[in-house]
Protein backbone atom coordinates (compact mmCIF):
# COMPACT_ATOMS: atom_id res chain seq x y z
CA UNK A 1 0.00 0.00 0.00
CA UNK A 2 2.80 2.40 0.82
CA UNK A 3 4.05 2.08 -2.73
CA UNK A 4 0.83 3.43 -4.19
CA UNK A 5 0.61 6.13 -1.57
CA UNK A 6 3.67 7.65 -3.20
CA UNK A 7 1.50 8.65 -6.13
CA UNK A 8 -0.71 10.72 -3.86
CA UNK A 9 1.99 12.93 -2.40
CA UNK A 10 2.48 16.51 -3.58
CA UNK A 11 6.17 15.98 -3.18
CA UNK A 12 6.22 13.21 -5.79
CA UNK A 13 4.40 15.27 -8.41
CA UNK A 14 6.54 18.35 -7.80
CA UNK A 15 9.64 16.21 -8.25
CA UNK A 16 8.25 14.72 -11.47
CA UNK A 17 7.79 18.15 -12.97
CA UNK A 18 11.26 19.22 -11.85
CA UNK A 19 12.90 16.15 -13.35
CA UNK A 20 10.87 16.55 -16.54
CA UNK A 21 11.98 20.14 -17.14
CA UNK A 22 15.31 19.53 -18.93
CA UNK A 23 13.62 16.78 -20.92
CA UNK A 24 10.94 19.22 -22.08
CA UNK A 25 13.59 21.57 -23.44
CA UNK A 26 15.47 18.66 -25.02
CA UNK A 27 12.46 17.04 -26.67
CA UNK A 28 11.23 20.36 -28.02
CA UNK A 29 14.67 21.02 -29.49
CA UNK A 30 14.95 17.56 -31.04
CA UNK A 31 11.42 17.89 -32.37
CA UNK A 32 12.13 21.19 -34.11
CA UNK A 33 15.25 19.75 -35.77
CA UNK A 34 13.54 16.54 -36.84
CA UNK A 35 10.41 18.27 -38.09
CA UNK A 36 12.72 20.03 -40.54
CA UNK A 37 14.22 16.68 -41.54
CA UNK A 38 17.47 16.68 -39.56
CA UNK A 39 18.21 14.20 -36.78
CA UNK A 40 20.39 15.94 -34.20
CA UNK A 41 22.37 13.40 -32.20
CA UNK A 42 24.52 16.27 -31.02
CA UNK A 43 21.89 16.68 -28.30
CA UNK A 44 23.86 14.93 -25.54
CA UNK A 45 26.90 17.16 -26.09
CA UNK A 46 24.75 20.25 -26.57
CA UNK A 47 23.18 19.58 -23.15
CA UNK A 48 26.67 19.46 -21.65
CA UNK A 49 27.73 22.61 -23.46
CA UNK A 50 24.61 24.42 -22.29
CA UNK A 51 25.12 23.25 -18.73
CA UNK A 52 28.74 24.37 -18.71
CA UNK A 53 28.34 27.65 -20.62
CA UNK A 54 25.35 28.84 -18.58
CA UNK A 55 26.95 27.97 -15.31
CA UNK A 56 30.29 29.52 -16.25
CA UNK A 57 28.70 32.77 -17.38
CA UNK A 58 26.99 33.12 -13.99
CA UNK A 59 30.11 32.05 -12.13
CA UNK A 60 32.02 34.75 -14.03
CA UNK A 61 29.56 37.36 -12.80
CA UNK A 62 26.68 37.44 -15.26
CA UNK A 63 23.11 37.33 -14.00
CA UNK A 64 21.10 34.13 -14.32
CA UNK A 65 19.03 35.06 -17.39
CA UNK A 66 22.15 36.16 -19.23
CA UNK A 67 23.54 32.76 -18.34
CA UNK A 68 20.54 31.08 -19.95
CA UNK A 69 21.05 33.19 -23.07
CA UNK A 70 24.75 32.27 -23.16
CA UNK A 71 23.81 28.59 -22.86
CA UNK A 72 21.32 28.87 -25.72
CA UNK A 73 23.89 30.66 -27.86
CA UNK A 74 26.49 27.96 -27.16
CA UNK A 75 23.96 25.32 -28.15
CA UNK A 76 23.09 27.24 -31.29
CA UNK A 77 26.75 27.37 -32.21
CA UNK A 78 27.16 23.59 -32.00
CA UNK A 79 23.85 23.28 -33.83
CA UNK A 80 25.31 25.44 -36.58
CA UNK A 81 28.25 23.05 -36.93
CA UNK A 82 25.84 20.13 -37.25
CA UNK A 83 23.66 22.12 -39.67
CA UNK A 84 26.56 23.04 -41.97
CA UNK A 85 27.80 19.46 -42.08
CA UNK A 86 24.42 17.85 -42.69
CA UNK A 87 22.43 20.39 -44.70
CA UNK A 88 24.49 22.08 -47.41
CA UNK A 89 27.22 19.42 -47.28
CA UNK A 90 24.70 16.60 -46.92
CA UNK A 91 26.92 14.38 -44.72
CA UNK A 92 25.57 11.55 -42.59
CA UNK A 93 23.40 12.99 -39.86
CA UNK A 94 24.30 10.15 -37.52
CA UNK A 95 28.04 10.61 -37.86
CA UNK A 96 27.91 14.37 -37.66
CA UNK A 97 25.61 14.25 -34.62
CA UNK A 98 27.79 11.83 -32.68
CA UNK A 99 30.78 13.96 -33.64
CA UNK A 100 29.11 17.10 -32.30
CA UNK A 101 28.27 15.28 -29.08
CA UNK A 102 31.88 14.21 -28.59
CA UNK A 103 33.20 17.64 -29.53
CA UNK A 104 30.74 19.62 -27.41
CA UNK A 105 31.13 17.52 -24.26
CA UNK A 106 34.92 17.29 -24.51
CA UNK A 107 35.24 20.99 -25.21
CA UNK A 108 32.99 21.79 -22.25
CA UNK A 109 35.07 19.67 -19.86
CA UNK A 110 38.26 21.10 -21.33
CA UNK A 111 37.15 24.70 -20.87
CA UNK A 112 35.93 23.97 -17.36
CA UNK A 113 39.24 22.36 -16.40
CA UNK A 114 41.26 25.10 -18.05
CA UNK A 115 39.33 27.83 -16.28
CA UNK A 116 39.39 26.03 -12.91
CA UNK A 117 42.55 23.95 -12.85
CA UNK A 118 42.92 23.58 -9.10
CA UNK A 119 39.48 23.14 -7.64
CA UNK A 120 38.54 19.85 -6.06
CA UNK A 121 34.94 20.63 -5.10
CA UNK A 122 32.99 22.28 -7.93
CA UNK A 123 32.34 25.96 -7.14
CA UNK A 124 28.75 26.91 -6.60
CA UNK A 125 26.60 29.70 -7.95
CA UNK A 126 23.36 31.11 -6.59
CA UNK A 127 20.81 29.24 -8.75
CA UNK A 128 17.26 30.14 -9.72
CA UNK A 129 14.91 30.21 -6.71
CA UNK A 130 11.40 28.80 -6.78
CA UNK A 131 8.89 31.44 -7.81
CA UNK A 132 6.17 32.74 -5.59
CA UNK A 133 3.20 33.80 -7.67
CA UNK A 134 0.32 35.36 -5.75
CA UNK A 135 -2.76 33.10 -5.59
CA UNK A 136 -1.42 30.46 -7.98
CA UNK A 137 1.42 29.31 -5.76
CA UNK A 138 -0.96 29.04 -2.84
CA UNK A 139 -3.43 26.75 -4.56
CA UNK A 140 -3.70 23.36 -2.94
CA UNK A 141 -1.77 20.62 -4.74
CA UNK A 142 -1.53 22.52 -8.09
CA UNK A 143 0.34 25.33 -6.39
CA UNK A 144 3.33 23.36 -5.08
CA UNK A 145 3.41 21.05 -8.12
CA UNK A 146 3.37 23.70 -10.86
CA UNK A 147 3.79 27.17 -9.37
CA UNK A 148 6.49 26.72 -6.78
CA UNK A 149 8.99 25.59 -9.39
CA UNK A 150 11.90 27.67 -10.67
CA UNK A 151 11.36 30.13 -13.52
CA UNK A 152 13.06 27.78 -16.04
CA UNK A 153 10.40 25.14 -15.43
CA UNK A 154 7.68 27.68 -16.12
CA UNK A 155 9.60 28.78 -19.21
CA UNK A 156 9.68 25.18 -20.43
CA UNK A 157 5.89 24.95 -20.14
CA UNK A 158 5.48 28.25 -21.96
CA UNK A 159 7.84 27.09 -24.70
CA UNK A 160 5.69 24.03 -25.34
CA UNK A 161 2.91 26.42 -26.29
CA UNK A 162 5.21 28.67 -28.27
CA UNK A 163 6.69 25.82 -30.32
CA UNK A 164 3.22 24.39 -30.95
CA UNK A 165 1.97 27.79 -32.02
CA UNK A 166 4.88 28.41 -34.38
CA UNK A 167 4.65 24.94 -35.92
CA UNK A 168 0.90 24.87 -36.44
CA UNK A 169 -0.19 28.47 -36.69
CA UNK A 170 2.49 30.36 -38.60
CA UNK A 171 3.80 30.30 -42.18
CA UNK A 172 7.26 29.54 -40.78
CA UNK A 173 6.00 26.44 -39.00
CA UNK A 174 4.18 25.36 -42.13
CA UNK A 175 7.41 25.60 -44.10
CA UNK A 176 9.33 23.67 -41.42
CA UNK A 177 6.78 20.86 -41.43
CA UNK A 178 6.82 20.78 -45.23
CA UNK A 179 10.61 20.70 -45.53
CA UNK A 180 10.80 17.70 -43.23
CA UNK A 181 8.24 15.83 -45.28
CA UNK A 182 9.19 16.70 -48.84
CA UNK A 183 11.89 19.31 -49.50
CA UNK A 184 10.79 19.51 -53.13
CA UNK A 185 7.47 20.98 -51.98
CA UNK A 186 9.31 23.87 -50.39
CA UNK A 187 11.72 24.35 -53.27
CA UNK A 188 8.88 24.36 -55.80
CA UNK A 189 7.18 27.13 -53.86
CA UNK A 190 10.26 29.31 -54.03
CA UNK A 191 11.56 28.90 -50.47
CA UNK A 192 15.08 27.84 -49.49
CA UNK A 193 15.32 24.28 -48.24
CA UNK A 194 18.76 24.85 -46.78
CA UNK A 195 17.92 28.07 -44.95
CA UNK A 196 14.87 26.48 -43.34
CA UNK A 197 16.70 23.37 -42.25
CA UNK A 198 19.72 25.20 -40.91
CA UNK A 199 17.54 27.67 -39.05
CA UNK A 200 15.55 24.86 -37.46
CA UNK A 201 18.68 22.99 -36.38
CA UNK A 202 20.24 26.09 -34.82
CA UNK A 203 17.03 27.02 -33.00
CA UNK A 204 16.40 23.45 -31.87
CA UNK A 205 19.96 23.19 -30.56
CA UNK A 206 19.47 26.41 -28.60
CA UNK A 207 16.45 24.81 -26.91
CA UNK A 208 18.45 21.68 -26.10
CA UNK A 209 21.19 23.77 -24.48
CA UNK A 210 18.62 25.45 -22.23
CA UNK A 211 17.78 21.99 -20.94
CA UNK A 212 21.43 21.64 -20.01
CA UNK A 213 21.43 25.08 -18.39
CA UNK A 214 18.53 24.00 -16.18
CA UNK A 215 20.76 21.31 -14.69
CA UNK A 216 23.50 23.66 -13.50
CA UNK A 217 21.40 26.72 -12.80
CA UNK A 218 18.20 25.33 -11.35
CA UNK A 219 18.33 21.64 -10.43
CA UNK A 220 21.88 21.95 -9.04
CA UNK A 221 24.18 24.88 -8.51
CA UNK A 222 27.43 23.54 -9.95
CA UNK A 223 28.84 21.80 -13.00
CA UNK A 224 29.90 18.16 -12.65
CA UNK A 225 31.47 15.78 -15.10
CA UNK A 226 28.95 13.39 -16.57
CA UNK A 227 26.00 15.27 -15.12
CA UNK A 228 23.93 15.10 -18.33
CA UNK A 229 24.05 11.34 -17.97
CA UNK A 230 22.14 10.22 -21.08
CA UNK A 231 19.29 12.72 -20.79
CA UNK A 232 19.91 13.81 -24.38
CA UNK A 233 19.54 10.28 -25.71
CA UNK A 234 16.30 9.84 -23.81
CA UNK A 235 15.03 13.02 -25.47
CA UNK A 236 15.67 11.49 -28.91
CA UNK A 237 13.55 8.49 -27.90
CA UNK A 238 10.87 10.70 -26.35
CA UNK A 239 10.61 12.61 -29.63
CA UNK A 240 9.47 9.43 -31.33
CA UNK A 241 7.15 8.75 -28.42
CA UNK A 242 5.72 12.24 -28.93
CA UNK A 243 5.11 11.64 -32.66
CA UNK A 244 6.89 14.96 -33.21
CA UNK A 245 4.11 16.90 -31.49
CA UNK A 246 4.87 19.47 -28.76
CA UNK A 247 1.89 18.54 -26.59
CA UNK A 248 2.80 14.87 -26.58
CA UNK A 249 6.43 15.85 -26.01
CA UNK A 250 5.37 17.49 -22.76
CA UNK A 251 3.45 14.37 -21.83
CA UNK A 252 6.43 12.13 -22.61
CA UNK A 253 8.83 14.25 -20.59
CA UNK A 254 6.43 14.29 -17.62
CA UNK A 255 6.03 10.54 -17.88
CA UNK A 256 9.77 10.07 -17.75
CA UNK A 257 10.01 12.51 -14.85
CA UNK A 258 7.33 10.60 -12.99
CA UNK A 259 9.09 7.27 -13.54
CA UNK A 260 12.33 8.75 -12.23
CA UNK A 261 10.70 10.37 -9.22
CA UNK A 262 8.87 7.13 -8.52
CA UNK A 263 11.96 4.96 -8.56
CA UNK A 264 13.75 7.18 -6.05
CA UNK A 265 10.84 6.85 -3.64
CA UNK A 266 10.44 3.18 -4.39
CA UNK A 267 14.03 2.61 -3.34
CA UNK A 268 13.36 3.86 0.13
CA UNK A 269 10.26 1.71 0.41
CA UNK A 270 11.44 -1.62 -0.92
CA UNK A 271 15.14 -0.96 -1.38
CA UNK A 272 16.04 -3.62 1.13
CA UNK A 273 15.02 -6.38 -1.26
CA UNK A 274 16.46 -5.20 -4.55
CA UNK A 275 19.77 -3.61 -5.53
CA UNK A 276 19.48 0.10 -6.27
CA UNK A 277 20.61 -0.33 -9.88
CA UNK A 278 17.33 -2.04 -10.67
CA UNK A 279 15.49 1.09 -9.67
CA UNK A 280 17.82 3.29 -11.68
CA UNK A 281 16.98 1.23 -14.73
CA UNK A 282 13.27 1.62 -14.20
CA UNK A 283 12.58 4.95 -15.93
CA UNK A 284 14.61 3.88 -18.95
CA UNK A 285 12.92 0.50 -19.19
CA UNK A 286 9.51 2.07 -18.87
CA UNK A 287 10.43 4.69 -21.47
CA UNK A 288 11.42 1.96 -23.89
CA UNK A 289 8.19 0.08 -23.21
CA UNK A 290 6.13 3.22 -23.79
CA UNK A 291 8.11 3.93 -26.94
CA UNK A 292 7.50 0.47 -28.36
CA UNK A 293 3.81 0.80 -27.69
CA UNK A 294 3.54 4.16 -29.38
CA UNK A 295 6.22 4.18 -32.07
CA UNK A 296 4.52 1.67 -34.34
CA UNK A 297 2.01 4.28 -35.34
CA UNK A 298 4.57 7.10 -35.38
CA UNK A 299 4.15 9.50 -38.28
CA UNK A 300 7.80 10.06 -39.19
CA UNK A 301 8.86 13.21 -40.99
CA UNK A 302 9.30 11.45 -44.31
CA UNK A 303 12.38 13.33 -45.43
CA UNK A 304 14.24 12.85 -42.14
CA UNK A 305 17.89 11.80 -42.65
CA UNK A 306 17.64 12.55 -46.37
CA UNK A 307 19.94 15.32 -47.50
CA UNK A 308 18.67 17.56 -50.27
CA UNK A 309 20.72 19.00 -53.09
CA UNK A 310 19.49 21.52 -55.59
CA UNK A 311 19.21 20.33 -59.17
CA UNK A 312 20.02 16.69 -58.41
CA UNK A 313 18.81 14.19 -60.95
Amino acid sequence: MEVLDILLTVNFWAASVRIATPMIFGVLGALVCERAGVLNLGIEGIFTAGAMAGWMAVWAGADLWTGVAVAAAAGGLFGLIHAILTVPLGLSQHVSGIGVTLLASSLSYFIYRTALPDVTTPPRIAPFRPVDIPVLSDLPFIGPVLFQQTPLTLLAFVLVGVVAFVLYRTPLGLAIRAVGDNPASVEAQGLSVHALRMGAVVAGSGLMAMGGAFLTMSAFDAFFFGMVNGRGWICIALTVFASWRPGKALLGALLFGAFDAFQVRLQTEVGAFLPSQVFLMLPYLLSIAALVAVARKADYPRAMLTPWFKGQR
Binding site: T170, P171, R177
Partner: peptide
Protein backbone atom coordinates in the same frame (compact mmCIF):
# COMPACT_ATOMS: atom_id res chain seq x y z
CA UNK B 1 4.04 27.58 -62.55
CA UNK B 2 4.95 23.95 -62.90
CA UNK B 3 3.11 20.74 -62.15
CA UNK B 4 5.86 18.21 -61.65
CA UNK B 5 5.56 14.59 -62.69
CA UNK B 6 6.56 13.59 -59.18
CA UNK B 7 4.32 15.85 -57.18
CA UNK B 8 5.97 18.39 -54.96
CA UNK B 9 3.47 18.19 -52.16
CA UNK B 10 4.19 17.80 -48.47
CA UNK B 11 2.03 14.83 -47.59
CA UNK B 12 1.67 15.72 -43.93
CA UNK B 13 -0.02 19.01 -44.80
CA UNK B 14 -3.48 19.74 -46.12
CA UNK B 15 -4.21 20.86 -49.66
CA UNK B 16 -4.75 24.43 -48.55
CA UNK B 17 -1.50 24.43 -46.57
CA UNK B 18 0.40 23.21 -49.60
CA UNK B 19 -1.23 25.89 -51.72
CA UNK B 20 -0.35 28.78 -49.41
CA UNK B 21 3.13 27.45 -48.58
CA UNK B 22 5.63 30.09 -49.58
CA UNK B 23 3.01 32.71 -50.46
CA UNK B 24 2.77 34.18 -46.99
CA UNK B 25 5.54 36.21 -45.34
CA UNK B 26 7.54 33.60 -43.49
CA UNK B 27 7.89 35.63 -40.30
CA UNK B 28 4.23 36.60 -40.08
CA UNK B 29 2.81 35.63 -36.70
Amino acid sequence: GMVHQHFTLAENLTGLENIVLGTEPVLRV
